[in-house]
Write a protein that binds this DNA or RNA. Structure first.
Length: 414
RNA sequence: GUGGCCGUAGCUCAGCUUGGUUAGAGCGCCUGGUUGUGGUCCAGGAGGUCGGGGGUUCGAAUCCCCUCGGUCACCCCA
């Protein structure tokens, strides 16, 4: 036990890794169904991109970045989130107009690990660029919601809020800062410091909930357009049958959000980090990154959190058949047979080298195969013995029918 | 970055309070019973610098100090 994985990282091993693959696959499928095309951006970007995009005053940028200098002295950072990189890619490619991108991959934040919070974690997300209308927000929220339901998370509730656009926020910011200043003595040290740097963020400080529960709310300072956008959003959520709750003090810790912000809260997930995903609108982000005027709305889901919130599900079989070589002279023949089965789409494996028949059956069981197929004397008549490893029932069938047996779902007729 | 709890076999843990033979159990793993039958059963086996370092002592898994790691929470977010 000399080497361990770095602090806050996890190895994804079977059988759990099967669940990971499944969830990644269904994410690709679902986001494609909604018209999002796969995008991949680098795992590291220039440090400035995140400092500017995510916001200098955010927790993420202040202390959670995995930053390093490369051999040419460039300042780079392992991505703490993916939105900034996707925007950068869009701008760099000189794209214009609407763009719908979907992604999945690891992100990195340097923090003390705890349940639901790792230094390397896996995000799934989409970005809908170039769309102003609340229907875009709704589509993104619906996509994430449906995905979480498909994952078996049960009665997920979407917490939503609107924090207004740039002009709404100007009015609100100073009003909130004044209000907080009047109650300065009641606030935690950190909250006091934030009154200047980022008053919005005081709203979701756990330590200051009591004081802050009476504070003016962002929704009460929305302009005409912002209010209309928010009302359309709420009406749309109802219309689409999405369970939601207004969360007037939800602000989220990334500075680029405007108007809509939301989080997905699954039932019965009691970890302190209980949101399995979230997102919002970021109409000013493109300009911040020297891009064109470009509205956008996006969503990020934490795959690690989804999996621990979903609990364990009955694992599917890992293999369809495991070959048991009864006669050692038929080993190369067995390997050839395995190649044929694999080409036919059968998940098939066998041990390497000599093992007793008994040991091979043990291996078949341990590898979680649905059936064992014995290759022995019966091969001379073109036959194999196939045994259903759940029921124990076995029979001799033509070797050519093994693939069909698998397609039929592995049920051996009695 | 701050705080609580925990480090003994691959895993889950007992032993520590009150220092004293060779440090244990269950599960897992390997071999055999059965070189054509697994998941059950029986027999045998491998596997430990008691997280690391220092100290106290005739003697430390056990007491003291330091350190590293894990975990949960704060902060914040996926």
């Amino acid at each position: 036990m000399s080497f361990r994985g770095p602090k806050g990282t996890d190895d994804i091993l079977p059988p759990e890794s099967r669940r990971w693959r499944e969830l990644l696959r269904s994410w690709d499928l679902l986001s494609e169904q909604y018209g999002y095309a796969y995008v991949a951006t680098p795992l590291f970007e220039s440090t400035d991109l995140f400092a500017r995009g995510v916001g200098e005053a955010t927790e993420v940028v202040e202390k959670q970045m995995y930053s390093f200098e490369d051999k040419a002295g460039r300042n780079l950072t392992l991505r703490p989130e993916i939105t900034a990189g996707v925007l950068r890619a869009y701008i760099q490619a000189g794209l214009s107009g609407e763009f719908k991108g979907s992604y999945s991959g690891p992100c990195f934040r340097y923090e003390r690990p705890q349940e639901g919070r790792r230094r390397q974690f896996w995000q799934l997300g989409v970005e809908y660029l170039g769309a102003n209308h609340s229907e875009a927000d709704l589509e993104v929220i619906e996509l994430g919601y449906r995905y979480l339901l498909d994952c078996g998370l049960g009665e997920v509730v979407v917490h939503v809020n609107s924090i207004g656009d740039a002009s709404d926020r100007e009015a609100y910011h100073s009003r909130l800062a004044d209000w907080l200043n009047e109650r300065r003595h009641l606030l935690s040290d950190q909250a006091q410091r934030r009154i200047r740097s980022n008053p919005l963020r005081v709203l979701d400080s756990k330590a200051d909930q009591e004081v802050v529960s009476e504070a003016p709310k962002p929704v009460d300072y929305l302009g005409k357009d912002g209010l209309e956008h928010y009302e359309q959003l709420l009406a749309g959520l109802t219309e689409r049958g999405i369970a939601y709750r207004q969360a007037p003090r939800l602000v989220r810790g990334l500075d680029y959000y405007t108007r809509t912000v939301f989080e997905y809260i699954p039932p019965g997930y009691t970890a302190a980090q209980n949101a399995v995903g979230g997102g919002g609108r970021y109409d000013g982000l493109s300009r911040l990154l020297d891009g064109p005027e470009l509205p956008g709305v996006g969503l990020a889901l934490g795959l690690d959190r989804i999996i621990s919130a979903a609990g364990s599900s009955p694992p599917a079989r890992a293999l369809d058949v495991f070959l048991v070589v009864a006669d050692q002279n038929r080993r190369s023949l067995a390997h050839a047979f395995a190649r044929r089965l694999r080409s036919a789409g059968v998940r098939c494996d066998l041990v390497a080298g000599y093992r007793s028949v008994r040991a091979q059956f043990k291996a078949a069981d341990r590898r979680d195969a649905a059936a064992a197929v014995v290759i022995g004397d019966e091969w001379d008549d073109g036959m194999v013995t196939i045994k259903d490893l759940s029921s124990g029932y076995e029979q001799v069938i033509p070797a050519g029918e093994v693939a069909m047996w698998v397609v039929d779902g592995g049920a051996v007729p009695r």
